[in-house]
Nucleic acid binder design. Structure first.
Lengths: 220, 220
DNA sequence: TTATTAATTTAGGTTTGTCTAAATATATTT
DNA sequence: AAATATATTTAGACAAACCTAAATTAATAA
């Protein structure tokens, strides 16, 4: 019922990887956790023995439903702390993540439920990601403009702000349409432009004006 | 500049032990940390190599001034979190310690300074212990009645509520006078009586009425 | 002051989580 | 389908932080 910081980081990372691809891979996880593939294999065996992942050697892995429950509780802690840091302690948007990364491993359920209450049961963290409730229920997606989504989250284009041909021409040229999967890689303070990546292509920049017209939904 | 959870626990425990006796011992520390003496020796060597303690084999140890600085910063974190838990999250007096024990190891200075600000720079935690400021300055003692001090802290009797002979007779009988070192071991909800221990003796009970007349000062 | 007891340290293991290098399985090309 | 490339796993080490049992030092009592 209680997991080490390291185990928790693995579980959380697998959860996020699974949002993209249904099944996570050793190398993929190694990249995310900045660890060597051999270390991933070691830990996966352990998580398997604890019945937190389905895992067949060489075949990738997926969280079990127990594993998902654990992941959601870690994500709940993380996002509540992010909300606290931003809302109460007035941290800037981009400073909250690293601190929350530490705080999330303090696992007292009472602490987290009381924090939730204190914060007024917020539904989204400062990045717009939904916060699981104490039962692990989470709002699957939300729809926001491309200019508002967090970095490095896969999002799917689901709506366009208007139907002017000028807009559609530009989108066509950039190869973005409804259903396109993309990720925001970087934001540039100078002109609010953002760098996006679609499919396997090299990331490219789009203007703030365009970003505000593109609406996406994205997972947790 | 950054220490493991384990190192921090050692440093903090040594600091507290030193409040009582000027120099801490292997067995004393082992008792506090619920570890074996051999483990203490191992860690002490490490802390010595990091210049956090003065340590001669078989001769006990004391924090260096650097070690004290580190200890005060850990205590600052601990007490600020205790205050937060009690004041903001409405935890009961006796529930805050264990959770703060985990939170204190999240070492972002910015987090702690912003938390301090958010809380309005409180000077004492819910147990009445003083909270070090961001420079590590701490109010050395405070004077309160015996009925208010935390459990298991050595306190020194420094004042008596009144001079009635009935009171003094009782105190004399119990062997408590100005300068007596004592510790509260337990509180009984039924009649608010408390169990105190002085010197090497077996702990004994005193009434709430008496406790309220005895004023003590105690360290951090 | 020597003998006994108590405290402390040393020596050698264990577990957790990491690593490198080598081996093996799977996927991709030709 | 074989050859090559890539992904994954295994084998064997290592550091941190703990442990037990044995040895050593210091403190206490006879």
């Amino acid at each position: 019922m209680n997991f080490s910081t390291s185990e928790e980081n693995y579980i959380k990372a697998i959860f996020h990887l699974q949002q993209e691809e249904d099944t996570a891979t050793t190398n993929g996880l190694a990249a995310v956790l900045k660890a060597r593939p051999a270390s991933i294999t070691d830990m996966l065996k352990k998580l398997k023995s604890k019945k937190l992942v389905h895992y067949q050697p060489y075949r990738g892995f997926r969280l079990t439903s127990e594993g998902k429950k654990v992941a959601l509780s870690i994500i709940r802690r993380h996002r509540l702390w992010e909300y606290f840091l931003s809302e109460k302690l007035k941290f800037a948007w981009d400073e909250v993540h690293d601190v929350a990364e530490d705080l999330e491993h303090v696992s007292s359920k009472k602490l987290i439920d009381k924090l939730d209450e204190f914060l007024g049961y917020p539904r989204f963290d400062p990045h717009g990601d939904p916060i699981p409730d104490s039962q692990g229920r989470i709002e699957k997606h939300q729809q926001v403009s491309l200019s508002e989504i967090p970095l490095n989250k896969t999002a799917i284009v689901c709506h366009v702000g208007d139907q002017t041909s000028a807009l559609l021409e530009l989108m066509k040229h950039k190869n973005i349409g409804i259903g396109t999967k993309l990720e925001v890689k970087k934001r540039f303070a100078f002109d609010q432009s953002i760098e996006v990546k679609i499919r396997q292509q090299i990331p490219f920049n789009i203007s703030e004006l365009l970003a505000k017209k593109i609406f996406v939904k994205y997972g947790v």
